[in-house]
């Protein structure tokens, strides 16, 4: 596969330990929604795939999973990178996706366009990896739910404008629903389906 992609950007240097470190960041991010967890590892994936989103997908996806990517990411370079570093099958129907990669947050499909799982098997839903601008500025949200002792506030720059409304609609489906991993420039924030989300400005 490398042969027809001579310029293919690198993946993890030390796959075993970097993937473990990245996985723990994702686990902690989803276990404690709203906390920013540093992710490093992959440095220069093909644009517009971000380094953080690339690390997360390389950590979690493989030939037993499927990936849907938005129009912004559907470039030959990104597709080749995903195919080489994960072996996952790319799908065009978001309902078939184990993972979704979204670079253009403003035009993200409604969450219920993805696999939502079933009441019998709610774990079969899509995990959405949404590239955002960061967690230092932007819209502020008040979070509550499992993983949060009382409430927790988080700022997200570059999220869809209706993130709170999307969260409410997703939460109403519980136990079905998607889980979100927001991928900033150096860190991730998890918003699992259990998190209650309220915009506070």
């Amino acid at each position: 596969m490398n042969a027809h992609s001579p310029t293919l950007a690198a993946g993890f240097v030390d796959p075993v330990h970097e993937a473990q470190t990245c996985f723990r960041a994702v686990l902690d991010a989803l276990a404690e929604p709203g906390t920013a967890r540093a992710v490093a590892g992959i440095t220069e994936p093909p644009a517009p795939l971000s380094a953080v989103a690339a690390s997360v997908i390389a950590t979690l996806a493989d030939f037993e999973t499927t990936i849907w990517r938005d129009a912004a990411l559907a470039t030959p370079a990104v597709d080749a990178w995903i195919a080489f570093h994960t072996g996952a099958r790319l799908v065009e129907d978001p309902r078939e996706a184990t993972f979704a990669l979204i670079a253009d947050a403003a035009n993200a499909p409604a969450w219920d366009a993805f696999a939502l799982g079933t009441d019998l098997d709610p774990s079969t839903s899509t995990t959405v990896i949404l590239q955002v601008d960061g967690f230092d500025a932007g819209a502020r949200y008040h979070l509550a739910g499992p993983g949060i002792e009382t409430t927790r506030d988080v700022a997200v720059a570059g999220a869809p404008a209706d993130l709170a409304a999307r969260g409410r609609a997703n939460r109403d489906l519980f136990p079905r629903g998607v889980d979100l991993v927001l991928a900033g420039p150096t860190a991730i924030v998890g918003l699992p389906r259990t998190t209650r989300l309220e915009e506070i400005g």
């Binding site: 796959p15 075993v16 993937a19 473990q20 996985f23 994702v26 686990l27 989803l30 276990a31 950590t59 979690l60 996806a61 493989d62 037993e64 999973t65 184990t98 709610p122 774990s123 839903s125 995990t127 499992p146 993983g147 136990p175 889980d179 699992p192 389906r193 259990t194």
Partner: peptide
């Protein structure tokens, strides 16, 4: 590593649906 990824994916869904057996 492939087995770890499979277990890790299950763990993430388990955390997202507390108490549900994945």
């Amino acid at each position: 590593e492939q087995t770890k990824r499979m277990i890790r994916r299950a763990l993430l869904k388990a955390v997202a649906i507390p108490g549900h057996q994945v």
